[in-house]
Each structure stands twice: as structure tokens, then as C-alpha cells.
Amino acid sequence: MEEKNLICINCPLGCMLTVAMDGKKIVSVAGNTCRRGDTYARKELTNPTRIVTSTVRVLGGSESMVSVKTKEDIPKGKVLECVRALKDVVLPAPVKIGDVILEDAAGTGVSIVATKNVQ
């Protein structure tokens, strides 16, 4: 059996995880202090995903930029494509937290939403 070491990125505790693997099968996860660690380890070794955050330009608002994020985590390999898709997006003010900025970002099926209120 093979052992892999990971650091959980779900929260700032950064638990050190030890994953026992039998070929491509995950046998056990140890070292996590909560359920998220177990889920993270299984995902990270099969289909790693990330939440992506960035900013988008706003026209006519109290701020010139609004922060945005993918509503859910997306495959790691799609991160750069997702940010590129936001490059030329310009929003008219006002923008509210949760407003959908872009649907189906980079073909992931996940939408990008605003994370800040701009008047």
C-alpha cells in the first residue's frame, strides 16, 4: 500500500493528511480534524478543484472594481481559462452580492457571482 501526504486547504488550520492508497483506490484518510479534510483528500487525489476569485470592472459605481468568485469549486485545470473569461467583462453599477456575473464559466457549468456590493 502507498501513502500520500497532503495539506488540507479548506481552512487555515492546514491539517496534515496522510492518505493510504491501494493503486488508484483510496483506502483511508488520517490526520484530518473535521469531515472536510476527508472529502478534500479524496477529491484532491482524484479530481482536484478550487474556488476561483478575481475582480471585474464596474462602470459608474462608487468603486471601480467588484470582487467575484466561482459559486462552487471548479476543476483545477480550468482555473486560468475561467479568469481569462472574466478579462473583458464590464458591469454597470449597482452590483449586489450574489449577482450572477457570468454563467457557465469556461464550460464548467458553474456561474461566477459578485462578492461585494457596489452602489
Binding site: 479548506n10 487555515p12 492546514g14
Partner: peptide
């Protein structure tokens, strides 16, 4: 934080 080394540098 360790998580930032993983997701900001290693990635």
C-alpha cells in the same frame, strides 16, 4: 499558512 503555500505557490 500552510494552505496558502499549497494553493498559491504549489498550484
Amino acid at each position: 499558512l500552510k494552505r496558502n503555500i499549497v494553493q498559491c505557490l504549489d498550484d
